[in-house]
Design a protein around this nucleic acid. Structure first.
Lengths: 267, 267
DNA sequence: GTGAATTGTCTCTTACAAAAGACACATGTA
DNA sequence: TACATGTGTCTTTTGTAAGAGACAATTCAC
């Protein structure tokens, strides 16, 4: 489309696989990349580094950041040359929560569940085709089971992923899962067909348990939350030590399913 | 000085710039206006109405909204022609909370305070020069005292406003307060000098009480939260019926000041 | 000290995004 | 039946925003 002469001026930086580098980008896209970059770094960052990070021209980055800071979407950190998310994003986020019954009630249920059971509990959803931990409440165990809100993990690595994709077309699922997603952290490679079979199974049983997938020490129990239309809108899950006894696990799954079902009831 | 806030009430900058005239706007600015518009409407809205609301061309609005929906900053509501804030904004908002000790602990303290006292409690901050209720927890009174998170109110109308501006230059304060801000809801007009005097008083007394300013039925008690550098970073406040007895008020103010002071201690 | 690297601001050019407008297809309503 | 009103997707045009680069003012490394 745009390259009539093939070779234009390729900036010689970016040895990393950043395909978004090209010639001219829309300002809005740059901003979206900036926000996403801040989301993954999880801390304030200098504007210069930010420009490098999103592979954008420095001058452009400065003007965009200034706009965003003026608008309150970003804030300058202390000394004044590092930026991070701003209050306005927090306010917009609260607006989202207010307008979203499921999320509001789900957060509550998750907090209750982890308090009652002492285990780490999470509310998970699809976020533009990716598995996302929307809210998590740590358990009371001395070993902190890691799981941060907003963390994104490949769908095949999780019990929730198997529930969230219930009822989707094979082609849709295939498009949502990359090759690297199928490569589990322990080195095994999952077959797409096996994953799809798992999804079908999870759908009929109404819950899903995975052992040692994300890491070798935990087991993940998940139950679906349905929308009024009958789609899987979210999942609630518990993360427990992998050696948890079967009776205990069954008990927790029953509780989990009850709470997830309660969430499914609108109102 | 401050600009780029082309929403409802125009700050009296000058008669020259008529930005409502349909000149070509930067896409990013349009997006910022869209977000702000959604924030004030507080519910999903059709794209056509959105275009009207921010005074942008329809075609432009469609493309921008599509970008934002693809990015997850906005989401299509139910039937698919209304949009509102999306999950990504919620995640970014949580990132902000995580990176902000004061906000995280402040929310907690406010919740505690309203539970203990039964009164509506709020955490307030400056947000790009404007007074903002960052978090609020309703009291147990039958009459619901109105105060929504994210609400923005003119600084001179509030007790918190008098604390938040402590230590600022006269000129700075003047620039942050418009003529219409000085016109109180009950019709009285506050003099800028009186307001500045109030600020100085509040600074020395270490708290502030206003009666019947925002509405005729409530009294607002506020105490400052200091940053490590000694600036007023936020305020905590309680909203109580205007006829609350003096002893009760004094008691609440003491409690409020104690909690605000606790918040001021980093860690 | 000296030189390299980073930061923030500025100017100028042109590639391209915002805007205008036409279109097809729904609705509703006289 | 015509007649308005709203919606979503095109294409075309042109005003301007993204980007390159130069600059001074810093910081850092030695």
């Amino acid at each position: 489309m745009q390259d009539s002469n093939g070779i234009t001026d390729q900036p010689v930086l970016g040895p990393a696989a950043d395909k978004t580098s090209g010639s001219r980008e829309k300002g809005l896209n740059r901003v979206l990349e900036i926000l996403e970059f801040l989301h993954v770094t999880q801390r304030a960052i200098g504007i210069g580094d930010l420009a490098k990070g999103v592979n954008a021209p420095r001058s452009t980055t400065y003007t965009l950041v200034r706009s965003l800071v003026d608008a309150g979407l970003l804030e300058m950190e202390g000394d004044g040359n590092r930026v991070y998310f701003g209050k306005k994003l927090y306010l917009y986020g609260m607006d989202y929560v207010r307008g979203n019954d499921l999320l509001r009630r789900g957060r509550q249920e998750v907090d209750n569940l982890s308090r009652e059971t002492g285990e780490t509990s999470e509310l998970c959803m699809l976020q533009s085709g990716r598995y996302t931990i929307v809210h998590s409440s740590p358990g009371t165990r001395p070993f902190r089971i890691s799981s941060a809100t907003g963390l994104q993990i490949p769908l095949p690595w999780t019990a929730s992923g198997r529930l969230l994709l219930a009822g989707l077309e094979r082609a849709t699922i295939r498009d949502m899962v990359s090759e690297s997603d199928l490569l589990l952290p322990d080195g095994r490679r999952l077959q797409l067909d096996d994953f799809i079979a798992d999804i079908a199974t999870a759908r009929t049983t109404g819950y899903c348990i995975t052992s040692g997938l994300v890491d070798a020490y935990t087991k993940c129990l998940a139950a679906p939350v349905f929308s009024a239309a009958g789609n899987v809108e979210a999942t609630m899950c518990l993360v427990v030590p992998i050696d948890t006894a079967k009776e205990k696990t069954d008990e927790l799954v029953a509780l989990l399913r009850e709470r997830a079902a309660r969430l499914s009831i609108p109102g």
